[in-house]
Amino acid sequence: MIDRADLTVAPETSIRVALERLDRSRLQVVFVEDAAGRLVGAVSDGDIRRGLLAGAVLDDHVSGIMNSGPAAVAPTASQDAVDELKEQRGIRVVAVVDDGGRLVDVVGEGESIGTPLSTPVVLMAGGRGQRLYPITKDIPKPLVPLGDVPMIDIILGRLREQGFRRVHVSVNHLGHLIEAHLGDGSRHGLEITYLHEPMPLGTAGAIAQLRDRIGEDFVVMNSDLLTQVDLRRMLAFHSATGAVATIGAREYGFEIPYGVIRREGDRVTGLAEKPYHSELVSAGIYVLAPDALGLLEQDEYCDMPTLLARLMDDARRVSSFEIREEWIDVGRPEDLERARQAWERNGR
């Protein structure tokens, strides 16, 4: 989310004040907005230097030396379009403007575009990862790398691309290593806080700590998923259905490797050779309304199916949202290998 106190000035602002803002700006640029809040220019150190060499003085208005054609894209622009624009213009920062030309975000060096959302995301990272042992003997599963990138870094990068900024990470097993790696999240352009589990609390128990801290729908997901699902669509679907909880669902199919007999009593009525069977399974991604937290007790062990069952027993609506994008649950060694191959193949 942009910080207007350091990143924007008015056209009549003095060059001196703009220079002071530049000193505080993490992006080495300040943007110029008119009285209606529309982006009309940008000022960098180079613009100021060229202006002073041309005879401007520090008390002149910044409008006289600004770049009146700053690089800007719409919030719907792709990351490829942003990268291409940066390369074409030889710049490190691109403005993001809405339909009215108002600045809503900036994409700096190494950052990805995404309209900032207030929606919190909870990453469940407290598990022991026993199915990946001995890999997870000394390293928590979220830090297991795909290539040379820890899984949780990939997940956080994709969250930021979609506009999420607030992340709560639940930690237990080797949690200090996760905290040391992620810190406050600023390296990822995120605000990260931690939910400390005094003991393993299951896939839902830790979120009881958020009961008085969240006042809007929020996302809960496992931290061992490699997926391209658009969580913004899932949030919109959740809101449209009026559900208190929405389960991300994934089709899981398998082939029975034998001929299957259909019968009535001992009479054979049909044969099916190696039939394919499929079901929708939980994908480890959920959207919850804040009042769902009222059914959890602090430090109570509770897995997500139990919480969802409580909601349904209370006659609350629980919806399902089918995930058709890439989805790999990195639970077993063969899943880890598949995820690594997908990461190497796609590069993201």
Rank of each mutant, 00 (worst) to 15 (best):
A204E: 09
A292S: 15
R92C: 08
V287S: 08
E326P: 05
G202L: 14
M66A: 03
L336G: 00
L156H: 00
L159E: 01
D98C: 04
E161H: 12
D184C: 00
R50H: 12
H176P: 00
V106M: 07
D266K: 13
R160A: 06
I154G: 01
V94M: 04
E273M: 13
V219E: 06
D98W: 09
P290D: 10
L52A: 07
L182V: 06
I152Q: 01
A72V: 03
A243T: 11
G64H: 05
G347C: 02
R263E: 12
P142Q: 08
A342T: 02
E325V: 05
R211N: 04
Q79V: 07
V9W: 04
D80P: 01
G205C: 10
G242K: 02
R166G: 01
Y194L: 00
V229M: 08
E111D: 14
R332F: 15
E109T: 04
L52D: 03
L307E: 08
A342H: 05
A5K: 12
G108P: 05
P116Y: 06
Y133P: 00
A339P: 02
M312I: 10
G90H: 09
Y133T: 07
A125P: 03
V144A: 09
N67A: 05
R50D: 15
E255G: 06
V220S: 05
S282A: 14
D47W: 05
T8F: 06
A245D: 10
D105S: 12
W343P: 00
P150Q: 03
S78L: 10
V94L: 07
L146F: 13
W343C: 02
S223M: 02
E109V: 06
D224S: 12
R250M: 12
G55W: 12
V169I: 12
L27C: 03
D217P: 15
S223A: 15
G37A: 04
G51H: 05
P70C: 03
S118A: 12
A245S: 13
G108K: 01
G189Y: 00
R232M: 11
D60I: 06
V244Q: 08
H238G: 07
A71R: 03
R213A: 13
R232S: 11
G205K: 07
F254Q: 11
V57Y: 03
D230M: 10
D3F: 08
E300D: 14
S320T: 15
A10I: 09
A54L: 05
Q209V: 02
R187K: 11
S320F: 15
R187H: 01
I91N: 11
